[in-house]
Nucleic acid binder design. Structure first.
Lengths: 325, 325
DNA sequence: CTGAAAGCGCTAACAA
DNA sequence: TTGTTAGCGCTTTCAG
């Protein structure tokens, strides 16, 4: 009866041994429901993943897996919710005591799910950043800094005219935080450094990339570098550049904001700012667990510092400017 | 107390109305744990997804989302388990009454998780087919038939020498059912039709595809058609064929086994056999729910019939053979 | 340090 | 058709 007591009270070694042995031999397993009922803690975290088709899926799955893994390491299980279900799903799983806490992915700037969290909200962590993160706990990559980093790198190499191949139009239409923040970072830094910047949303298909590329080259013939924030557009872009006789990085530079794996395996290994999917999932859970253990634990926003890795896709522009010697 | 009774016993209309009203106004939500305890039914299905990096992720996620969506439609929630945790996770969630039933993805021919399911097993459905499916409930695409279909199509067009660009070596090393079954289907049909068939496993990176392609063309100069079962290899392959001056479908044909979206959005829209990810997830849940409702419900294997859609990547070989008229 | 007992909120069986 | 009640298997409090 009093067993296992998760060490909640002193137990003699003898008793502990005896109980442990019985547990093994009988294959005893505590009933999850009974436990949840008596303790009013289900040891379940709900994870809401989007089911969009215009986002790069591997990142989502990576985060989800990291969440599940980290949660398990802390004794929690993960309940899978689809974004489709919206705010009501949060109320449901939370109100019924099914889940003790919630992790939200693919947060939008003005996300309807946030209302639930602010009012009588269950402990929650967002992977992403809404317009107003006050009172919420958020974890994300500092995409604004990531954008700035890309411009810095290219400007330092001597590029004066940069084109940005962005996410699908739908992503911006939904005001997805990370895309807009990256763009802001790119624009601000470009302006400060006096570098020209042209941004175009872009679907991931070969044809769409071809169209966008053509437009960009038409509107800004002086472009010598691309920043790509769209994993599925990476290969089409590289292929098209190759096909039109533009060597990377000799003729044009390409910098991506994408997972390491994508950058490293591209047909030209890409200089890139990594999206640390696993790290994001891990941190989200750790924050949540900390808050579950101690409701007074710190809330607020945690932005991971982006890191740019130089690979083979970036170099000085074809006609070097103002770098004497 | 007697409320909502899920219609388990006759209730007068008046009472029903009254109870419903109170439920609304008080925002009452039944406690999941208490419910699970009293009824010994948690209304939770555990879904075990692999966390491999060498499988095409969108298909996995599609299945998972379909499972979650369909489960909700039947009043179930989904618990996310990673393949990493192995058989013990099944015992844990199942033994503790956390989950009533289990869906397994990425099943291997000799899967260690199957032992748990056969002995004192909880209701389970596999998405995929093990070597011995007896006593188990399985749902999958008939990959053998899919392979045969590809060969049929190409042979009918007049191709006599086909190369297969397969999944990563690791997939075969693990004896993942779908890959081996496809291969078997391809080989048997090729043999029957007297068509030459060369299979090579292939990583998804551009370089790997280049190497494999070079080997194939070297070993079998007469190859006039490719069957690709590796989503990430599709674009590299098309790019390489283009680059080496082989027009698709005029010089070589390409047929893929992949999701519709991949085939349709390729730089050359691909003739393909679709992988119906959503359908698989949906069916898996429906089988499970049927069995949960009626333990006597049919078990066994359900193989979806593959469908080949002709797009723009397949045509007759460059030098037509023996098709007089 | 350990035993005993009172619920946790619900379902299901038993009366009425 | 409806009211009552006995648990479901655990956690936790209160005695010892």
């Amino acid at each position: 009866m009093s067993y296992v007591l998760s060490g909640k009270r002193p137990i003699s070694d003898g008793t502990r041994q005896r109980v442990r042995a019985s547990i093994e031999q009988l294959g005893y397993q505590p009933h999850a429901g009974a436990r949840a009922l008596a303790s009013s803690r289900s040891r379940i975290i709900a994870l809401m993943v989007p089911l969009r088709t215009d986002m790069y899926v591997p990142v989502m799955l990576d985060i989800a897996v990291a969440v599940a893994t980290t949660a398990r390491a802390h004794g929690y299980d993960v309940l899978l919710l689809t974004g489709e279900e919206g705010p009501s799903a949060l109320r449901r799983v939370t109100g019924s005591g099914l889940a003790e806490a919630v992790i939200l992915m693919d947060v939008q700037l003005h996300d309807e799910r946030l209302a639930v969290l602010r009012t009588a909200g269950p402990p929650a962590v967002l992977v992403g950043l809404p317009a107003d993160p006050s009172g919420l706990s958020c974890v994300d990559l500092d995409f604004a800094a990531a954008g700035a980093l890309c411009v810095d790198h290219l400007a330092a190499l001597g590029h004066r005219e940069i084109a940005v191949v962005g996410e699908s139009p739908g992503v911006y239409a939904r005001h997805t935080g990370f895309a807009e923040r990256t763009l802001r970072g790119l624009r601000q830094r470009a302006e400060r450094l006096g570098v020209g910047l042209l941004h175009r949303a872009c679907e991931g298909s070969h044809d769409a990339v071809a169209r966008v590329l053509a437009r960009i080259l038409d509107e800004r013939p002086g472009v010598s570098a691309f920043v790509v924030q769209n994993e599925t557009a990476v290969e089409p872009l590289l292929a098209l550049l190759r096909r039109t006789g533009r060597a990377v990085p000799e003729d044009v530079s390409v910098v991506a904001v994408c997972p390491e794996a994508v950058a490293a395996q591209a047909s030209v290994p890409l200089t890139s700012v990594a999206i640390p999917a696993q790290e994001l999932g891990r941190r989200a859970v750790e924050r949540l667990v900390a808050r579950l253990a101690d409701p007074a634990a710190r809330t607020g926003t945690e932005l991971l510092t982006p890191v740019l890795t130089v690979r083979e896709s970036s170099g000085p522009p074809p006609r070097p400017l103002g770098i004497p010697l």
